[in-house]
């Protein structure tokens, strides 16, 4: 039943398929993010409590929600790579990790820039912020573990094990941090009040969330293609591409 999928484990096919998919992802991502951001910045009505500072939501929330999803994507790819020994899945995981780290960093930074005018401080040890910070550390751990092995087949396996251990730990960390912050601080801070959001405000947010997802997909494809080439330097089809590139 899944036989057809296995043909895409062949690096050349995977390379070509991602090449055909890339323009679609890229164009859709640009369109969605362009539309969502313009709508959010220019046309969405002002929040009556937070004023115009709430417009940060249109990048903060997509980045924050995608950071977790990207980690899951990376860990699933590693899992497939470890269990079925499919190398293309390992390369996909290696391609995703830096993107996830950047997205998590963006979520943290925009959160800080939103917190300063709203709460009067750049950083609070709030549950969500803390678990996002821990997520960033997990990403950095996976990236540096992958980078420190010379042999990239081993590197992918080691980083994969770490990513999977991280997946088991992410809910525990999230739960413990939630519980810790409810213990330590009175819940005076509410990040989002859902009821105050009108449809006019929510639509651009949803569009931007879809746009961020597509954009992460597009960057993953770009990095994935480079990763395939780097890991298959001995194959004739890659060598042909290399000769063509050098002639340019």
């Amino acid at each position: 039943m899944w036989k057809w999928l296995h043909t895409y484990a062949d690096p050349e096919r995977a390379y070509k398929l991602s090449g055909t998919l890339l323009p679609w992802f890229a164009c859709l991502a640009i369109a969605f993010i362009g539309l969502g951001t313009t709508w959010g910045l220019l046309f969405a009505p002002m929040d009556y409590q937070q004023g115009d500072s709430f417009r940060i939501i249109y990048i903060h929330v997509p980045a924050a929600s995608m950071s977790m999803a990207t980690y899951m994507a990376m860990a699933s790819a590693s899992f497939v790579g470890l269990v079925w020994q499919i190398k293309s899945a390992d390369w996909a995981a290696a391609a995703i990790a830096p993107i996830g780290a950047i997205i998590t960093f963006i979520a943290l930074l925009t959160g800080a820039a939103w917190g300063k005018p709203m709460w009067g401080t750049w950083w609070v040890w709030d549950a969500r912020l803390t678990s996002e910070l821990v997520l960033l550390f997990l990403y950095l751990g996976v990236i540096s573990l992958y980078a420190s092995f010379e042999d990239k087949v081993l590197a992918a396996r080691a980083a994969g094990i770490l990513a999977i251990v991280g997946v088991i730990n992410v809910p525990i960390i999230k739960y413990s941090v939630d519980w810790w912050s409810s213990l330590h601080q009175p819940s005076t801070i509410k990040i989002t009040e859902k009821s105050t959001m009108t449809n006019e405000m929510i639509f651009p947010l949803l569009i931007n969330m879809a746009g961020f997802g597509l954009m992460i997909g597009a960057i993953t494809l770009v990095r994935y293609r480079a990763e395939i080439l780097a890991r298959n330097g001995m194959r004739p089809w890659v060598r042909e591409l290399a000769t063509a590139e050098e002639a340019k």
């Binding site: 951001t37 910045l41 940060i56 990048i59 903060h60 980045a63 830096p98 993107i99 950047i102 960093f105 963006i106 930074l109 925009t110 820039a113 939103w114 954009m215 960057i219 770009v222 990095r223 293609r225 480079a226 080439l229 780097a230 330097g233 890659v238 060598r239 591409l241 290399a242 000769t243 590139e245 050098e246």
Partner: peptide, 28 residues
């Protein structure tokens, strides 16, 4: 926030796009 976001993303995208050429040149 918008500046940092699009700055980070632009850097990531340029680095990722350039990576392919770098890899191919190295193989050559």
């Amino acid at each position: 926030s918008y500046g940092v976001t699009f700055g980070c993303l632009a850097t990531l995208i340029t680095l990722s796009v350039r990576k392919k050429r770098k890899v191919l040149i190295e193989i050559a």
